[in-house]
C-alpha cells in the first residue's frame, strides 16, 4: 500500500499544501533568483539549511561558475508617429545601450525570412520582430537569435515580440545568444500589443522612431552551487534515481512557476518518503540546479562531474514546465522501460492520472537522456504556463496548492518505486 500511503499523505494528509507553503516562504522572502544575483545566493543558503533541517542525507553544495548579468534601468519610448512609453524587458546576456540610448527608425518584420528579404532596409534601424506564436520551441528562436540575425543585416538594436500566446501588456524576458563573428547589439522583448501595433503602423507606411535605453551589463562569471540531498539506498546505495528542478529564475515576478514549483515538488518527494519512514533500495537524489535559465549551466557542470557513474543512474527526472494539474508523465527510454513506467503509473489510478507520454525531457536532464539514461518529466496543464512564464506575472498567486499536492504525489510515487525496484530500468 505504499503508493496509496504516499497519495494519502501528499493530497489528503498532514503533508497537503506543504510544498506550496514552503515555496511561498522562499519566494516571499527572497523574490526572484537571477543567475549571479544575491537573491539566488540567499536562496541557495536557505535551501541548503532547510534540506539539512529536513534530516535528508548527504546534503551538500557542488560548485558551479555561472553567468552574472544585470539588466539595470531600461526603457523604450516611441517618439514617432506619437509619444508612447512601451513596456520592455531586456534579454539575458544582452549588452546595454549608450547612456543616451539608441534612437532609430524601426523596421518591422514578421519572420527571419522577411528580414533576409528586406535586408537592405535594415541598416541603422531597430528591427522589431512581430513573429506569430506557433509553439514555444519554434517561436523562442526569435528571442534566442533575433539580435544576431538583425545585426547581420546592419541593425543597431532588436525588439522582439514576447514569446507568449496571450498578453495583458506583459513583456516576457529570456536568454539570448550572441555569435562571435557578428556585432553585438542590444536586444529586448516588447509586448505582443506593441509589436502588433507597430506592424499595423508600418503596413500603413507610417514611419516609426524609437528611443531604446538599456543599462544592461555583463560581469565576470561568479560562484554558485547545485544543491544535492539524498535518501541513501538501503540495498544499492551507489545506484541513483535523480529527481530535480531548478532554483534559479529570471529577475521578474517571483520565479514561482518557473521553476519554484518543480524544485519544491522534488524536495517534497524526499520529504514524503522520509515522513513515511521509507528507504528505497537505491539512492534517491534531489538536485536543485543553478543557472538553468542561462542554458543549463549547473546541469552541465553536474553532468561533467558525475557522468563517470552514468551506468548507475536508473532514471533522471525533472519538473520544469509548471506544477499545475498533471496530465501524466513524459518519458524517454527503451520500450521495456516504458512498459515498466506504464505499470508504475497505474499505481496512480486513485488520482486518475496514469498516462505515460513521449518526450521526457528537461534542460537539466537532457545530457543524461542523450547518453541513454531513461528520463521523465512532469506534464501538466500548460494552458496558463506560457502566459506567465518569464514575466512579472510569474508569482505564487498563479499557483494552486491542491494541484501542487497532486504533482508532488505523482513525482513521489514514480521516483520511489523506480528507486525501490529490484532492477534498474532497462536501457536500449
Amino acid at each position: 500500500d505504499i503508493a496509496k500511503a504516499i497519495i494519502e499523505l501528499a493530497v489528503y494528509g498532514k503533508a497537503q499544501n506543504r510544498s506550496y507553503d514552503r515555496l511561498a516562504l522562499l519566494v516571499d522572502t527572497v523574490g526572484p533568483r537571477l543567475s549571479g544575483s544575491k537573491n539566488l545566493e540567499m536562496a541557495i543558503r536557505i535551501m541548503y539549511q532547510s534540506l539539512k533541517d529536513n534530516d535528508l542525507e548527504n546534503v551538500h553544495l557542488e560548485l558551479v561558475k555561472i553567468p552574472h548579468w544585470e539588466r539595470g534601468e531600461e526603457s523604450a519610448v516611441m517618439l514617432k508617429p506619437r509619444f508612447h512609453e512601451m513596456a520592455v524587458l531586456g534579454l539575458g546576456s544582452s549588452i546595454g545601450t549608450p547612456s543616451e540610448g539608441i534612437t532609430a527608425e524601426v523596421l518591422v518584420v514578421n519572420s527571419f525570412d522577411e528580414l533576409r528579404r528586406r535586408a537592405p532596409e535594415a541598416k541603422g534601424k531597430i528591427v522589431v520582430y512581430n513573429q506569430p506564436y506557433l509553439n514555444y520551441s519554434r517561436t523562442v528562436q526569435y528571442r534566442f537569435r533575433g539580435a544576431v540575425e538583425a545585426a547581420k543585416v546592419g541593425a543597431v538594436a532588436s525588439l522582439i515580440r514576447s514569446v507568449t500566446p496571450f498578453s495583458i501588456y506583459s513583456p516576457h524576458t529570456g536568454i539570448q545568444k550572441y555569435q562571435d563573428d557578428v556585432p553585438k547589439i542590444p536586444t529586448a522583448c516588447i509586448t505582443v500589443e506593441d509589436a502588433e501595433m507597430m506592424s499595423r503602423m508600418a503596413s500603413r507606411g507610417v514611419k516609426i522612431v524609437i528611443r531604446l535605453k538599456m543599462g544592461a551589463r555583463n560581469y565576470p562569471d561568479t560562484d554558485s552551487f547545485n544543491i544535492v540531498a539524498e535518501i541513501t539506498g538501503r540495498k544499492y546505495p551507489e545506484q541513483v534515481v535523480l529527481v530535480s528542478g531548478h532554483l534559479d529564475s529570471w529577475d521578474v515576478g517571483q520565479g514561482a512557476i518557473d521553476d519554484g514549483g518543480g524544485a519544491f515538488i522534488s524536495w517534497e518527494a524526499l520529504s514524503l518518503i522520509r515522513d513515511l519512514g521509507l528507504r528505497p533500495k537505491r539512492t534517491l537524489r534531489l538536485v536543485l540546479w543553478t543557472a538553468e535559465e542561462q542554458g543549463g549551466i549547473g546541469a552541465f557542470q553536474y553532468y561533467e562531474l558525475h557522468k563517470v557513474n552514468i551506468s548507475n543512474y536508473s532514471l533522471v527526472m525533472e519538473s520544469d514546465a509548471g506544477t499545475f494539474l498533471p496530465t501524466g508523465l513524459q518519458f524517454t527510454g527503451s520500450d521495456k522501460a516504458r512498459a515498466i513506467m506504464k505499470e508504475i503509473m497505474n499505481l496512480l489510478q486513485p488520482l486518475n492520472i496514469t498516462q505515460v507520454l513521449n518526450h521526457g525531457e528537461g534542460e537539466d536532464i537532457n545530457l543524461w537522456i542523450q547518453a541513454g539514461v531513461p528520463g521523465a518529466s512532469l506534464l501538466d496543464n500548460l494552458y496558463k504556463y506560457f502566459f506567465f512564464h518569464h514575466s512579472h506575472g510569474d508569482t505564487l498567486t498563479v499557483m494552486d496548492p491542491k494541484q501542487m499536492n497532486i504533482a508532488a504525489a505523482i513525482w513521489t510515487v514514480v521516483s520511489y518505486v523506480v528507486a525501490d525496484l529490484e532492477e534498474m530500468l532497462p536501457r536500449s
Binding site: A3, N312, E343, L347, Y416, M424, P426
Partner: peptide, 24 residues
C-alpha cells in the same frame, strides 16, 4: 547487483509487473 552494466533485464516483465503491483 542489478547494475546497468549487464544491460539486460534479469526478470521477466510479468515478475516486474507483479513487483510494481505490490506498491499499489
Amino acid at each position: 547487483q542489478a547494475t546497468y552494466k549487464n544491460a539486460t533485464c534479469q526478470k521477466t516483465f510479468q515478475k516486474i509487473q507483479k513487483e510494481i503491483a505490490s506498491y499499489g
